[in-house]
Design a protein around this nucleic acid. Structure first.
Lengths: 206, 206
DNA sequence: GCACAGATTCTACACGGCGCAGATTTTTTT
DNA sequence: AAAAAAATCTGCGCCGTGTAGAATCTGTGC
């Protein structure tokens, strides 16, 4: 099903009008942050980027591809932060957790609408779903290591480090999503509650 | 903006063809479970209910209203379970948690596609968003009481019972959503991991 | 300067799905 | 049986996506 689209630009030739692609993504995010999802029509994006509707299809094969590229760009930045943080294996678990949550909060603060839109479309646009689960998987991997270092069994059972990290990462995602969706977002409070839960999971008594 | 829809049926007169409304909802859920979201077009729903496309608009003002009614019906059943469970204030926290999670798992098992669709559309259809948050709020209220009885401070800070219950309820929702979205869903495992986290939050050492 | 190739853009059209209008038929009421 | 209300149908118009093909702009070799 990966047939080549008819009017799709060849990536092998990085010609001049390449900045148009960036302009389109910029216009899309701008539109998303200010107007919302429904007003973000192809017509509106194209106009925002200074071209006509048909011209946009020279750069992107569909509206979904535009959204996917936008999400990919945002998640790439987030993943980079998380990966850079992976190296700090010497830092104590508590600080590692606080740092990861802080990084996540920062991303939700700066690109909340893109993050929310990604979540909303993850189910209906497979590519976005893959990007999102891959990002969460990266976090899960890192945090699994943190939990193990904190003394939680390193197995594959439902009560072992990997499963706990997996669910706690999705919890953190959801908490920030919820907080960001409020009329008056309170990301710090969400971060504080998440941190408390992560800590309690670590500091438990058998 | 709550103007009355032109071709909308008056609820004050419970005439005969009332079972059509049920047939429509049944057809919608049937279609949702078997085909997915995109194939669930108004045309398909109407055909499944044995009427023509235009006729459907006599019963529901829009496609969104059909979906909203379907979600409302499903969540009403879930909330009823949770409310009936509220009365058991004598049961110990561990059992209360297990029971609540078990009830939730049961609902996701029987109506997973409706639940997932509800989550996916909560952001874009306000009415569904309200229904969902209201349901989670009900659970949060109950579970806050459980956490308080387990010894967690009953304040409104980010580390107090209400905030913890809120985030843990959203975590549970997300865990089941994730599990249900897998090619081979493993709800019991999701339930086990959630239970473990709830327990660890309760059984922590200062 | 000129012809050519590729890149970039535009206008115009077709398709699919939603929602509405008005006519028509069935059902209920009196 | 007549009238009113309920229920259903057919057909139309709108909006947004995606595509086709023509037109323009750009650089390049001669």
């Amino acid at each position: 099903m990966a047939m080549e689209r008819a009017t799709r630009r060849q990536r092998a030739t990085p010609r001049k009008g390449d900045l148009r692609e960036q302009a389109i993504l910029r216009a899309a995010e701008e539109l998303l942050e200010r107007e919302g999802v429904e007003p973000m029509t192809v017509e509106a994006i194209a106009t925002g980027a200074g071209i006509s509707r048909g011209s946009l299809y020279f750069y992107f094969g569909s509206k979904q591809e535009v959204l996917t590229a936008l999400v990919a760009r945002t998640l790439a930045a987030l993943t980079e932060d998380a990966t850079a943080f992976t190296d700090d294996e010497a830092t104590p678990p508590h600080e590692a957790i606080e740092h990861a949550i802080s990084r996540t909060e920062h991303m939700w603060r700066g690109h909340g609408r893109v993050m929310r839109t990604a979540v909303d479309h993850a189910a209906v646009i497979p590519e976005i779903g893959h990007l999102w689960t891959a990002t969460v998987a990266t976090f899960t991997k890192v945090m699994t290591g943190v939990l193990v270092r904190a003394g939680i069994p390193d197995g594959d059972g439902p009560a072992d480090a990997a499963a706990l990290a997996h669910t706690l990462c999705w919890m953190t995602e959801r908490a920030f999503y919820q907080a960001a969706a409020q009329p008056v977002p309170d990301l710090p409070r969400a971060a504080a509650t998440c941190t408390e839960i992560w800590f309690r999971v670590i500091n438990h008594r058998a």
